[in-house]
Amino acid sequence: KTRWTREEDEKLKKLVEQNGTDDWKVIANYLPNRTDVQCQHRWQKVL
């Protein structure tokens, strides 16, 4: 388990703006080493 970088956080924010929060698998495709569940959790709990 690796810490999220600032770059990953920024990328996640942009991806959510573009794609919404309905399909985390699509978002995870753009973030290597991150699963859809990790992306969703990061968005809901941290950002």
Score class of each variant (00 low, 15 high):
18 Q>M: 07
44 Q>W: 07
11 K>Y: 13
23 D>H: 08
31 L>M: 10
15 L>R: 05
18 Q>D: 05
17 E>S: 05
5 T>I: 06
46 V>S: 10
26 V>W: 10
11 K>E: 07
5 T>D: 07
1 K>R: 04
14 K>N: 14
13 K>V: 09
22 D>A: 10
28 A>I: 02
5 T>A: 08
18 Q>I: 14
9 D>W: 01
35 T>W: 05
17 E>Y: 05
46 V>F: 15
3 R>W: 15
14 K>C: 09
9 D>A: 01
3 R>V: 13
45 K>S: 11
29 N>Q: 11
41 H>T: 13
5 T>E: 05
47 L>T: 07
30 Y>W: 14
11 K>W: 06
46 V>K: 07
22 D>R: 10
27 I>G: 01
27 I>D: 01
37 V>D: 13
22 D>V: 13
24 W>K: 02
28 A>K: 03
6 R>V: 11
47 L>V: 12
25 K>P: 10
21 T>V: 06
14 K>A: 08
39 C>E: 01
21 T>H: 06
18 Q>G: 08
39 C>P: 01
46 V>N: 12
37 V>A: 12
8 E>R: 00
10 E>F: 14
24 W>D: 00
26 V>K: 11
11 K>V: 06
40 Q>V: 05
16 V>C: 08
7 E>Q: 12
12 L>S: 06
46 V>D: 15
5 T>F: 11
2 T>C: 05
39 C>H: 00
34 R>S: 05
23 D>L: 04
28 A>Q: 06
44 Q>T: 12
8 E>H: 03
42 R>D: 02
24 W>G: 00
2 T>W: 07
39 C>K: 00
45 K>L: 09
22 D>T: 13
34 R>V: 02
3 R>P: 06
16 V>Y: 02
41 H>Y: 14
13 K>R: 10
3 R>S: 14
20 G>V: 04
27 I>N: 02
40 Q>Y: 08
17 E>A: 14
19 N>S: 08
45 K>H: 13
32 P>Y: 05
41 H>K: 14
9 D>Y: 01
4 W>M: 02
42 R>Q: 12
28 A>L: 01
32 P>C: 07
45 K>Y: 13
19 N>Q: 15
30 Y>V: 08
15 L>F: 09
24 W>T: 00
6 R>W: 07
42 R>F: 01
13 K>A: 12
35 T>C: 04
30 Y>H: 13
25 K>R: 12
3 R>N: 09
6 R>H: 13
23 D>Y: 04
38 Q>T: 05
18 Q>A: 13
15 L>P: 00
14 K>I: 05
27 I>A: 02
42 R>V: 02
21 T>N: 08
14 K>R: 12
19 N>T: 09
34 R>E: 01
17 E>M: 05
23 D>K: 08
30 Y>T: 08
17 E>W: 09
6 R>G: 08
25 K>N: 12
7 E>F: 08
18 Q>V: 11
40 Q>A: 11
5 T>W: 01
42 R>T: 02
43 W>F: 09
32 P>G: 12
25 K>H: 11
35 T>S: 03
8 E>L: 04
32 P>A: 10
17 E>L: 13
9 D>V: 04
43 W>P: 03
6 R>S: 15
30 Y>E: 10
7 E>P: 05
45 K>G: 10
32 P>I: 07
45 K>I: 11
41 H>G: 10
20 G>T: 05
26 V>Q: 11
20 G>I: 04
20 G>C: 03
43 W>A: 14
18 Q>L: 07
27 I>T: 04
31 L>C: 02
29 N>C: 10
16 V>I: 04
25 K>I: 09
43 W>N: 04
27 I>H: 03
37 V>I: 12
13 K>S: 11
10 E>D: 14
23 D>E: 07
24 W>F: 07
26 V>G: 11
45 K>E: 13
11 K>S: 08
45 K>F: 09
40 Q>T: 04
43 W>S: 06
3 R>G: 08
17 E>R: 14
17 E>N: 14
42 R>G: 02
32 P>S: 10
36 D>Y: 07
46 V>P: 05
12 L>V: 01
4 W>N: 00
1 K>I: 15
13 K>E: 03
14 K>G: 11
27 I>K: 00
13 K>G: 09
8 E>F: 00
31 L>G: 00
8 E>K: 01
3 R>Q: 08
26 V>N: 13
37 V>K: 12
15 L>C: 06
42 R>P: 03
5 T>Y: 04
24 W>Y: 03
21 T>P: 07
19 N>F: 08
43 W>Y: 13
14 K>P: 01
45 K>N: 14
46 V>L: 12
29 N>M: 05
19 N>L: 15
30 Y>F: 11
20 G>L: 05
31 L>A: 01
45 K>T: 12
15 L>H: 08
39 C>R: 00
32 P>F: 07
9 D>G: 03
26 V>E: 11
2 T>K: 12
13 K>D: 02
7 E>C: 06
44 Q>K: 12
10 E>C: 13
21 T>Y: 11
40 Q>N: 05
22 D>C: 06
25 K>C: 14
13 K>Q: 02
4 W>C: 00
34 R>F: 07
46 V>Y: 15
34 R>C: 03
8 E>M: 04
29 N>A: 08
34 R>L: 03
17 E>F: 12
20 G>Q: 09
32 P>W: 04
46 V>R: 10
15 L>M: 14
5 T>Q: 03
38 Q>C: 14
17 E>D: 06
27 I>E: 01
38 Q>N: 15
40 Q>E: 15
39 C>F: 01
23 D>N: 14
29 N>H: 15
28 A>M: 03
22 D>F: 14
16 V>G: 00
17 E>G: 13
4 W>L: 00
43 W>M: 06
20 G>W: 04
24 W>M: 02
18 Q>C: 10
2 T>Q: 15
2 T>P: 09
4 W>I: 01
43 W>V: 06
41 H>F: 11
15 L>D: 01
25 K>V: 14
40 Q>P: 00
40 Q>D: 09
41 H>A: 14
28 A>G: 06
3 R>F: 15
47 L>Q: 03
32 P>D: 14
31 L>Y: 11
18 Q>K: 08
36 D>C: 11
16 V>T: 03
42 R>H: 14
4 W>Q: 00
18 Q>E: 07
28 A>T: 04
2 T>S: 15
16 V>N: 00
45 K>D: 12
37 V>Q: 10
21 T>S: 14
38 Q>L: 04
29 N>W: 08
36 D>G: 09
45 K>P: 02
4 W>E: 02
16 V>D: 00
20 G>S: 10
46 V>A: 09
22 D>P: 10
21 T>M: 13
14 K>H: 15
19 N>G: 08
6 R>M: 13
2 T>R: 06
21 T>Q: 12
42 R>W: 03
5 T>N: 07
47 L>A: 04
7 E>M: 10
43 W>C: 07
8 E>A: 03
22 D>N: 15
2 T>N: 03
20 G>M: 06
43 W>K: 02
41 H>N: 15
21 T>I: 12
26 V>I: 11
26 V>H: 13
10 E>A: 09
14 K>E: 13
17 E>V: 10
42 R>I: 02
23 D>G: 04
23 D>I: 03
19 N>W: 15
18 Q>R: 09
22 D>W: 05
29 N>F: 10
41 H>I: 11
2 T>Y: 06
40 Q>W: 09
18 Q>H: 10
24 W>P: 01
30 Y>C: 06
25 K>M: 10
15 L>V: 13
42 R>C: 02
47 L>W: 11
32 P>V: 10
29 N>Y: 15
23 D>T: 06
21 T>W: 04
44 Q>A: 11
8 E>T: 02
36 D>K: 05
38 Q>H: 11
10 E>Q: 14
38 Q>E: 13
36 D>T: 09
46 V>H: 14
38 Q>A: 14
24 W>Q: 01
32 P>L: 07
18 Q>P: 02
40 Q>C: 14
7 E>W: 06
7 E>I: 09
30 Y>A: 12
4 W>R: 01
21 T>D: 12
28 A>R: 03
15 L>A: 15
15 L>Y: 08
3 R>E: 14
23 D>Q: 11
1 K>W: 02
45 K>R: 11
9 D>Q: 03
6 R>C: 09
29 N>V: 10
22 D>Y: 04
11 K>D: 05
9 D>C: 00
28 A>Y: 00
23 D>C: 11
13 K>T: 06
30 Y>I: 07
31 L>H: 03
4 W>P: 00
6 R>D: 09
9 D>R: 00
21 T>R: 05
26 V>S: 14
14 K>L: 09
15 L>W: 04
30 Y>P: 04
47 L>I: 15
8 E>V: 02
30 Y>D: 13
28 A>D: 01
3 R>H: 15
7 E>S: 11
28 A>F: 00
40 Q>G: 04
41 H>D: 08
23 D>P: 02
6 R>P: 13
24 W>V: 00
44 Q>R: 10
5 T>L: 07
40 Q>L: 08
22 D>Q: 07
28 A>N: 03
6 R>T: 14
8 E>S: 02
4 W>T: 00
1 K>Y: 15
14 K>Y: 07
29 N>I: 02
27 I>M: 04
3 R>K: 13
20 G>H: 07
6 R>F: 13
6 R>Y: 11
9 D>N: 05
39 C>L: 03
36 D>N: 10
47 L>E: 06
6 R>N: 09
3 R>M: 15
24 W>N: 01
15 L>N: 04
3 R>L: 15
31 L>S: 02
44 Q>M: 11
